[in-house]
Every structure is written in C-alpha cells, then in structure tokens.
Amino acid sequence: MARDADPAVAAEALVKRYGGVAVVDGVDLAVRRGECFGLLGPNGAGKTTTLRMLLGLTPPDSGRLTVLGEPVPQRARELRARVGVVPQLDNLDPDFTVRENLTTYASYFGLRERDLGRRIDELLAFAALDKRASARVPALSGGMKRRLTLARALINDPELVVLDEPSTGLDPQARQHIWQRLRQLRADGRTLVLTTHYMEEAERLCDRLAIMDRGVVVACDSPEALVERHLERYVVELRGDAARRWPAAGQGRDIHSREVGETVLLYADEPEPVMAAVAAAGLKYLLRPANLEDVFLRLTGHDIRE
C-alpha cells in the first residue's frame, strides 16, 4: 500500500493554549511506521493534550499535523476509522457484557456482527477474556477492564494504536500482562504511540521516546541513546542520613553531583572512585546504572514525580 510510506505521525510546531497559557508549546514529532513511540513526562507536561490533537479531538491553535497521511483535524473522522484508542480512564459500557462492549463499539465503526466473523473471539482470546465473555463490566478486575479496553481499540484492525497511560493504576502483574500484549501488537507491525510517566514502561516498551516537560519536547531518541548522550553510565545514590551528610563529606572532591529532595545523586562513568570516597566518609550508598529519570532530571532540572 502506497500510504504505508507515510510516516505514522508528522507534527510540526504544534501549539495549544488554554486561557492564554500554552499547554503544548511548539511540539515537533515524527513517528515511524511500526515503532512504539513514547511521550514521557510528568503530569501537566502536555502529553494528553498532544494525544488529543493527534486524534483530532482538540484542534491545535497553530502548527501542522498529519497522521497516517491524513491531515488533522480536517480528516479526523477518516483517520479515527484507522486508529485504535485506549483512553486514560476506562470508559467501557457498564450496562453491557464483555462481548457486547466489543460488538457495540464495532457498530460505531459501521461494522456489524456478521462482518466481524471470528474477530470478536480472537480479541477475547487476545485479552484473555474468552471465559468472561458474558460477564458484565462491573464484575471485572482493573486489569481485565484495561485488557478489554485494549481489545476494543483493536476492533477496527487499526494501523496505529494510541494509548494514554496504558498501565496507570494497575498492579504489577496486570501491568506485565498489558506490556506483553503491547509488544505483541508491535510485533504484528502496528504503530504504537503511548504516554507514560513510568520510566520502566518507557524503557521496556518504547523504541523511541520524546521527553516532554512544560509543553515542549526536551529530547527525542531511543531510551539507550538518551541515557548515553546525556549522562554518565552510573549513578551512586545517597538517601536520607547519607544524603544529609554528604555535602560536607564530599567537599573538595571532583564528583559530579545533584541534590533532589532527600536524595543526592553522584554521576560517574567509572563509579569505583566515587564509591570509595563515599565509603571513606562512612556513608551507605546504592549503585545503579543511569536511567531515563536521571536524563529527565538532567534536562529539566526537576524530578519527574513533581
């Protein structure tokens, strides 16, 4: 198909203002076909607004946006026929069973039950809900509801699946379950765009990430490249009492450090001398590889959890 050659998302200088405040302030994005692309940032960074713009649900105040080759918001309806959406809040129909949720949602795409054939059964199996097909939604656990929402988003066999915080509020097992399904979708050749404020989710799932803060993209690359380009390889982390005593103990030593709340982070490509210095001061420490959270901190000057 010729249109497969279009990038999944091409956004230039997107701006969205609410009451004079730019919530999204000049965002450029280029998402390739078949990749899992993450928007990472704290609450209020503009991730959800960006997603809404991609779907044509919020018109940008300025900028240029094409998704799957369709200009948005002008052809948002045609676009949404080819996209699956997993919203941040579950909005399943509580009056319907699991299966009816899928068939009703299919009707919004103009798909009838007889057109769907085995698709409903396949989606129920994909979501591991085949034995709960006749259950009402309120009887499902949080993880089941999220899997049903994901299955619902696939009813139209979408080329692009957009997920707003797909694992927020789930317990660790349910989260693993969802991640596994998302990897499967990517292996099927679908493009995924998701928002998250979990480093682990971003690192495990995403081929590439845009780190967002206060309405702008501060960096965009693969998780490994982001860490490599912006940071030393290791972090020696001091907490609590150790963090309080380090500024004095570390004085005069040439160690790259940063204080974040109750924690002191010491960065180094070769951590041994740093660990030795900390141990010499009689402090306890934690050695770990540098991660995306450290990148975020380095690029924005504040913690992602703020």
């Binding site: 779907l55 949404r80 959406v85 919203p87 919004y108 103009g110």
Partner: peptide
C-alpha cells in the same frame, strides 16, 4: 459519569 461519549469519540463518530 460513564464517559460513554468519550469512548464514541475515539471511534469515527463526531
């Protein structure tokens, strides 16, 4: 309350 309309807006409904 149910966000049923929000779900519909994820489909090609206006």
């Amino acid at each position: 309350t149910q966000q049923t309309w929000a779900a519909m807006l994820g489909a090609p409904l206006d």
